[in-house]
Computed example of a mutant assay.
Amino acid sequence: MLQRLTLSGFKSIKTIDIELHPLNILIGANGAGKSNLISFFKMLNEMMAGRFQQYIGTSGRAQSLLHFGPRTTPQIEAELEFQVENGVDTYHIRLFHAAGDSLIFAEETLSFLETGRVVPRVDELGAGHQETQIIKAAEEGKQTARTLRYLLNRCRVYHFHDTSSTADVRQSCYVGDNRWLMPDAGNLAALLLRFRDEDLGYQRIIGTIRLIAPFFDDFVLEPDISNRVILNWREKDSDRVFGPHQFSDGTLRAICLATLLLQPENELPELIVVDEPELGLHPYALNIVADLFSKAALHTQILISTQSSSFLDNFDPDDVITVNREGKESQFSRLTSTDLEAWLDEYSLGEIWEKNVIGGGPH
């Protein structure tokens, strides 16, 4: 589990040092900085895929990533501590502003502190490189690098907001692209086909979708001659086959979330990061999705942001992190049940948030 994150100099985040739980819910006003924390994990995803410089280019260059630009903040520094079976693995990076409004690694360090020891084993990966060296170190057989590469690769950000007619999730995909769910669910049909054929919780996913969309019967997943499959489906009491373009945006997002959270436990990412999963969902569907997140947190780690007070009602205060914009920086604070005990006797957590008792609001 990712037990601690320290981050400084990234977008609106001047500095944070926060302990993470199995389930973490970010709440805050628009522009407070919730999405900036999530975009840090997106940057990590691209970094571990060897696309760090590409990510910088498509994100508005380094000036958009550094806290109020390179003149104010010349570097980004981050440290992620993972609790593993026999100790703590730590990944530390320092990214410095460079020519061409880019970022380079001024420092990249891996360490492992074995349980019962006081001095960690440290691997320095050098400085001045444009892409992470953890991939090379892992391929050379360094154990700490292999473990951390695996963990960082499995901290995955999912974004199901694009359900337009041209979105990948509404198009056909190659049946072999089914190892894990893509960040935009572009291979959803291929993954569901594998779950169905290998009996990997497919019926549980179907049953959950029926709770959210009672008209839904089942998917019709039939690869064509070029080994591509599309998300066709049937309605209850009908033989007619519908295409993915006939799903509403909210229903399609709910299907993506159900598939993500109900996949086999051994295939779940180490950390699931989702920005505003409530988008386009009916309040009843929201309660079902919230329950899916809570149950998934028994087997993996969850980090989500929300703007919905009714969605928030499904969680405990200890799961919640409020995000407030104080001047030019985002401040992150975890709630505690004991501090809200008197309020919770009369109000739900969402109502307390709306009353601006716990922060994370526009006032």
Rank of each mutant, 00 (worst) to 15 (best):
E265W: 02
R234M: 13
D101E: 15
G243I: 15
D275G: 05
G359R: 08
A297N: 01
N232W: 06
Y55G: 09
Q83Y: 03
M43S: 11
Y202F: 15
D218V: 14
L5E: 10
L188P: 07
V220H: 11
V88L: 13
Q263F: 04
R234E: 08
I135N: 06
D162R: 12
G280T: 11
S337G: 04
N324L: 09
A106S: 13
T109P: 00
F332T: 07
L37S: 05
L23R: 10
L65T: 12
Q307P: 11
F68D: 05
S39D: 10
G350S: 11
D162N: 13
Q246H: 14
E278L: 09
F293A: 07
L2H: 13
M43G: 11
F105H: 11
A190G: 08
S333E: 10
G126K: 10
E346N: 15
T90M: 03
G57L: 01
L26M: 15
G126A: 05
S12N: 11
F10L: 06
L193P: 02
R179M: 07
N30T: 12
G31K: 05
E77T: 02
Q331F: 10
L80N: 02
P283Q: 08
L286P: 00
C173A: 07
T115Y: 09
V323R: 05
K295F: 00
H161Q: 02
I288V: 15
T115A: 08
D239N: 14
S35W: 08
G359L: 10
P269Y: 12
A49T: 06
